[in-house]
Design a protein around this nucleic acid. Structure first.
Lengths: 176, 176
DNA sequence: TCCGTATACGTTGTCATACAGACGATATTA
DNA sequence: TAATATCGTCTGTATGACAACGTATACGGA
């Protein structure tokens, strides 16, 4: 593929420095995030992903399980037993949607809301630990850029972004 | 844990907005990165992870497979068959370390180096697509912050960081 | 030198997890 | 009413990670 690469300077201009690689730095961050968050949430159903499911349930205006799954990039069959476990743990409930009885509206119980609120405090600390290399201002810059990156989807339809635009506006016009 | 949370304002001050969650934005970025990179590298052995292995082989000064595995956060038994597939594909070779005959030095073949150089060009484009929401300057800021986050490990020993310090210096003193 | 321990790598077996496909229930449209 | 699409669930399968063990080699003390 694309044979126009015989220019020898190309491979020398990019000497494959391992610690500069974007994918590697991204992987390290994700790993640290998962390790630290996994340590924080003790018996919480599905670790960091379960936490994000609960965040989406409480915060997002997601009408059904499928929307929830697409929002998080999870297969819909996986979402089924994820929510099963949350129901078993008494954190969420499946409610019937009166206007579409195929769909299940997933709502947090009072206990789920409390658990989430507590976890969010722990997760804020986890984020600070993971981003400890940055000072407060840099952390905010990083978070803002990351949010913009996440909300701008290269391929439309891969996840919902209507709510993103709402948040952008709400936060004051989308950063610098 | 940490029962000092009866303050009711806490759960209202953090209303669990799904699109602000750090973990969610991180997940979206990783997913986009993996999807886009997976589309780019056609029959490359193990997708984005295989690419990162090759980057580490060529660029990192990693003495053996174990160091390689720890650098990437991979189990050492997984690294075995990852490298097996690279050897089969003619991209790398296992060389005996004369000073420690238990260890195998993994080096890229000429073909592996060419494949990596070509892939790195494609991956640069992938990164631009994934970070398309940012302009060039913001992209550089994001990359720099991410690199600093990755090189500052919260738990020492989780991966090597000696080389990180070297890169930081090489890039001009480690950024503001 | 000899012996015990530690390390690097490989292999095997086991288990979790994601995903494809099928199915029932409901909605929508012709 | 009939045909088709969608939501959620269930089942089987395959991919992948990890634990445990084995082999070869290095290191350190007796």
């Amino acid at each position: 593929m694309m044979g126009v690469m015989s220019n020898s300077s190309a491979s020398q201009a990019a000497p494959a420095r391992a610690q500069e690689d974007f994918g590697w730095t991204l992987g390290v961050l994700v790993r640290n995030y998962q390790n630290s968050s996994g340590a924080v949430m003790g018996g919480f159903p599905h670790g960091a992903r379960g936490y994000q499911v609960l965040v989406a349930v409480v915060g997002g205006e997601l009408p059904n399980q499928l929307a929830l799954a697409q929002h998080l990039g999870i297969d819909r069959t996986v979402m089924t037993y994820l929510i099963d476990d949350f129901v078993t743990a008494g954190l969420v409930e499946r409610q019937l949607n009166p206007t579409d009885r195929r769909a299940r509206i997933v709502v947090a119980t009072a206990r789920g809301g409390e658990a989430l609120a507590e976890l969010q405090r722990s997760m804020a600390q986890v984020e600070d630990v993971v981003l400890a290399a940055l000072d407060a201002g840099e952390r905010e810059v990083f978070r803002t850029l990351l949010r913009r990156v996440a909300c701008h989807t290269p391929e439309p339809g891969s996840h919902d972004l209507g709510a993103c635009a709402a948040v952008e506006q709400m936060l004051g016009g989308g950063g610098n």
